[in-house]
């Protein structure tokens, strides 16, 4: 099962020609094939149906299939472009393309904006920002008082919300990231440049994993 079987004949839903994907992403054809290998591994970890289910995504991220996380949920939803509850291999490769070191910074800024626009209103609102800070605190050992959280959210919001209308729009987000480039550091995965080294071939990788 998976994106591409060794025979190359049977393909699962969402299969896309690696050559076409390579044209539309920063990846080479061999890098796309290596990502297919990674996809096959992730998509068969719980249900071997060639699709990444949320539990499989959580298992890969946290080594725990039941660990839900606000941010992992948002990433999953953004990768699930068709919004059918699973990540298909084409969606996986296209989405990871944004995280490639050579992907346009504008794409990374846009992706991060959509990530943080929890309710998809086209704006990052103060309540959303506070919700994300609280979610982050819940998953870490960091304990901050309600007052401190308010101060952090207020300060960040006043810095980013240039127009002062109580919400951060895309243009304001872009300017804020340009002033604070470290905010999108996690939108780049240096590992993607070495993906063919990690997954050199379909056959070899499956043998190594045994």
């Amino acid at each position: 099962m998976g994106c591409m079987c060794s025979s190359g004949i049977k393909h699962t839903p969402g299969y896309e020609d690696p050559a076409l994907l390579a044209k539309e992403t920063p990846f080479t054809v061999s890098e796309v094939e290596s990502l297919y290998e990674l996809f096959n591994k992730l998509s068969s970890s719980i249900i071997d149906d060639g699709l990444i289910h949320k539990e499989e995504f959580q298992l890969a991220l946290f080594r725990n299939r039941n660990k839900s996380n606000l941010f992992a949920d948002r990433i999953f939803d953004l990768f699930d472009v068709k919004r059918n509850g699973v990540i298909e291999c084409g969606e996986f490769v296209r989405s990871l393309g944004v995280f490639h070191p050579n992907a346009p910074v504008e794409d990374k800024i846009e992706f991060a904006f959509r990530l943080y626009d929890l309710r998809q209103t086209g704006f990052i609102e103060r309540e959303e920002l506070k919700e994300m800070v609280i979610a982050l605190l819940h998953e870490s050992d960091l304990v901050l008082s309600e007052d401190v959280i308010e101060v952090i959210v207020d300060k960040t919001f006043s810095d980013a919300d240039i127009k002062g209308d109580g919400k951060i729009d895309k243009e304001e987000w872009k300017q804020f990231v340009e002033k604070n480039p470290s905010l999108i550091k996690n939108m780049t995965l240096p590992y993607l440049k070495d993906i063919t080294l990690a997954f050199p071939s379909f056959v070899l990788t499956s043998e190594l994993e045994d």
């Binding site: 890969a60 941010f71 992992a72 948002r74 920002l129 800070v133 998953e139 952090i152 919001f157 550091k185």
Partner: peptide, 26 residues
């Protein structure tokens, strides 16, 4: 560093849920 000087987005970006490098770990 004082908590009150933290950038909220900087804080959020440290979430484990946003660290996709875990996907590549064997």
């Amino acid at each position: 560093s004082q908590p009150v000087t933290m950038n909220a987005f900087e804080l959020i970006s440290k979430s484990q849920g946003l660290n996709l490098s875990s996907l590549f770990e064997k």
